[in-house]
Design a protein around this nucleic acid. Sequence first.
DNA 1: CGGCTTGCGTATATGGCATATACCTTAGCT
DNA 2: AGCTAAGGTATATGCCATATACGCAAGCCG
Lengths: 237, 237
Amino acid sequence: MIWTQPSPQRRRSPLERDDIVRAAVAVADEGGAQALTMTAVAKRLGPYTPMALYRYVLSKDGLVDLMLDSVTAEIPVPDAPGDDWRADLHALATESWAMVKRHLWYAQLMPTRPPLGPHLMRRTEFLLQVLVGQGLPVGEAMTYAALLDRHILGSAQQEAEELAMRRRYGLHSPQQLGEAITAARALAAEGGRHPLLTEWMTAPSGAGMDEQFALSLAFLVEGIAARLPGRDAPAGG
Amino acid sequence: MIWTQPSPQRRRSPLERDDIVRAAVAVADEGGAQALTMTAVAKRLGPYTPMALYRYVLSKDGLVDLMLDSVTAEIPVPDAPGDDWRADLHALATESWAMVKRHLWYAQLMPTRPPLGPHLMRRTEFLLQVLVGQGLPVGEAMTYAALLDRHILGSAQQEAEELAMRRRYGLHSPQQLGEAITAARALAAEGGRHPLLTEWMTAPSGAGMDEQFALSLAFLVEGIAARLPGRDAPAGG
DNA sequence: CGGCTTGCGTATATGGCATATACCTTAGCT
DNA sequence: AGCTAAGGTATATGCCATATACGCAAGCCG
């Protein structure tokens, strides 16, 4: 009788897939995608060698897949669309943006892997539900969903890029950063070409990234609204 | 930074910076960003070693900067905005899209480098001119310009991704590709979750990428139009 | 208790990468 | 003719992912 046997009591396994993924996420959070090496992850877990991880994650790509899905799970996805489809889109996009800001490597690694993680699929399904619920065919819904995601990932990429640039050139002190900006501006201003660009670089737009994100998002949702079936003229405004 | 370095041209030089950039672009066009190695570029130029290139391009990053600017130059940019700002935006975006489709690595490499190439700056300046010409402050103009570029680069990234995936998994035959799609769909359909996603994967949206691009572009331009000063509100100027 | 199996982590090696450094070679000026 | 400097190469370093082989220990069987 199995009931009398002690539980399978799988061998004491010090490493677990979850531990590895957590450590990898921490490494990438701190150092960006280019700091994510098997060696770095192994070291963070303790006195391990890089090869120890391969028992659990098959390959680095496998690890990346797990990482992406793991942080995608941080985005709260309702069971079903609510009454207000705009609010649904807005909430999902905003939550996604918040997650992506916590894990800036997401924008760098996401486009390198097939989007097949279970949590990502759940999220996509929800987006489609919201849009199809407004009368759109699936294909069109997917187009708009992709548009929203491009905006989120693109914004994240922009932030990640700035961070990476600061890291890459060792622009840690405000003084060094200032010098680099001055140099870039000088390049732009050379010969009096690019007056508008120079103006912007001298005083980059007052709106912060969050504000810009919210603005552009509202903007996209408006655009989608104008295209929903049942509207007369999409160009009307 | 590469932009401040003169192109070495003392002697009648067998190698030229331009030759190297052209070869690098050809390598990346054929094999994608991950095929772009100094060794590959050197070999394409003839019986050279990778180190030979360093006399001309300082580093691989420098080479990438030059490549990005070189293909950016393929985008025709008018001297000044025309009468129809929508047409200006539309034309620039469409030309950019055409260029990026010729060089799919652009979307992968562009976000890794500071956007300071001369041709890119010219293009940005033009975009700003068009939008500022419609009464927008520079900061807002930059926000919308970034939105358009995110759309272009995001679309390119999507195409590049598919290509890379096909390359990575050796899905060269239609049969293998079909099997992979079936497997992905099975993953999505598991347990009857994701009915909409499954539907889409069974028959991906009728519209091709070009069509989707044009649709989303029109969509963004409409959105910008609705936000121009003096449109909605009687106030403004 | 003793031997076998099995799975965990390690050691080592391979091949690719960017690139610093030192070197040889040759063009072209004086 | 000889000097100089630039072009290209050879070599080495230090990362990287990862295939392969191995040592070790924990649990199972008898």
